[in-house]
Computed example of a mutant assay.
Amino acid sequence: MPELPEVETSRRGIAPFLEQQNIAEVIVRDHRLRWPVNPDLPQILAEQRVHQIRRRAKYLLFDCDSGTLLIHLGMSGRLRVLDASQPLQPDKHDHVDIVFENGYRLRYTDPRRFGAVIWTHEPVELHPLLSHLGPEPLEADFDADYLLDKASKRQVAIKTFIMNAEIVVGVGNIYASEALFMAGIHPKMITAQLKRNQAFKLVEAIKAVLGKAIAAGGTTLRDFRDSEGNPGYFAQELQVYNRAGLGCRQCGHPIELFRQANRATYFCPACQGL
């Protein structure tokens, strides 16, 4: 599933071609995404201008004249910018095309159809999919004081806690394991036990891991590709995730794996002791 770094990579890939451009045509081939695509979307978006493309959590927000288009990539979604003048026949998983007056076409592809293409004319921050979300992990308001305050009120495992989008967005399973390793914190540690110095290390680790992943174009473990069809290369830098039985890059102890909240959790028992 594309996580925050993969979505941010997609945003950076498409924004230079589509921002400050007018929409000429919208083609919806299959309305059956996670939530049905509004049948009036082609008429709604016709001749509107995309002023800016932002990211909130794992949603891409296209700020238009009279509202916002939200795109979520789901489990297998992908966005590509194509030359609209070139004859490129869509395949069965190419569900939505947005054609721009500058000659580019944004194509949304989603084999599993778990993604979403949603229009709203209300303030996007109030949309039910966004209104409950916690802060962005790379912004200044996500700091040690914030994390410590939230953690002190909970009695859950720290890995489950930082993966909760109401606490902080975008820390998916891979990045949670990597950040906890970098901070030297065991994934089973109870949140109320978190100390100030640990909170500081964890916040810094989350920011560092996500920043490196974005710089590397995301992490490809299955089928993620960016807007140009390139895989993400952060997988080559993973310290613990998907390395069960291999020696820790830091101390040499074998990396261990266990199931936590139905997710695979990797850690080094020597570097992350309880």
Score class of each variant (00 low, 15 high):
K92R: 07
L61Y: 01
E204V: 09
I167M: 07
S131I: 14
T191K: 04
G170Y: 00
G172E: 00
Y108L: 08
T160C: 04
F161P: 03
G217A: 09
K92A: 13
P254Y: 10
A176R: 02
A179Y: 12
P90I: 15
Y233W: 12
G13P: 06
V169G: 01
D149S: 08
V117S: 10
I98P: 10
G218N: 08
L106F: 09
A270K: 09
T191I: 07
P128Y: 05
H93G: 13
F161Q: 03
T109D: 12
E101I: 10
D40H: 08
L73Q: 03
G172L: 00
E139Y: 02
R32T: 11
M189E: 10
G273E: 10
Q193T: 11
A208Y: 11
D94N: 14
P36S: 04
Y59A: 04
I214S: 04
P42A: 03
H121E: 15
G232T: 05
N242G: 14
S85M: 12
Q272M: 15
E228K: 13
R112K: 10
T68R: 04
F161Y: 03
L79H: 05
L221E: 02
R12A: 03
A270V: 09
E6W: 00
G211W: 06
L79N: 10
E125A: 11
L70N: 04
A192L: 12
I190P: 12
D40W: 11
G13S: 07
A57K: 01
L210Q: 03
Y108D: 10
D145L: 06
H121P: 15
G172F: 02
R243P: 15
D97M: 10
A183T: 06
D141M: 10
P269N: 12
T68A: 09
G232S: 04
E125F: 11
P5A: 06
R112M: 09
T120H: 09
D149A: 11
G217L: 07
P2E: 01
N262G: 11
H93W: 15
G74R: 01
V117A: 15
P135W: 01
R29N: 08
N22D: 06
G67V: 13
V7W: 01
L129W: 13
Y241H: 14
L274F: 05
Y108H: 07
Q239H: 14
D94M: 08
L130C: 01
Q193F: 12
L33W: 12
C248Y: 06
Q52A: 12
Q86T: 11
I98D: 14
N38S: 15
Y241K: 05
K195W: 11
Q52K: 13
H253G: 15
F62T: 03
V37M: 07
A192V: 09
I53Q: 02
E139D: 12
G74T: 02
Q89T: 11
I214E: 06
E139T: 03
A84T: 05
T120I: 10
A216N: 08
L202T: 09
L4A: 00
A205S: 11
F234Q: 15
L4W: 00
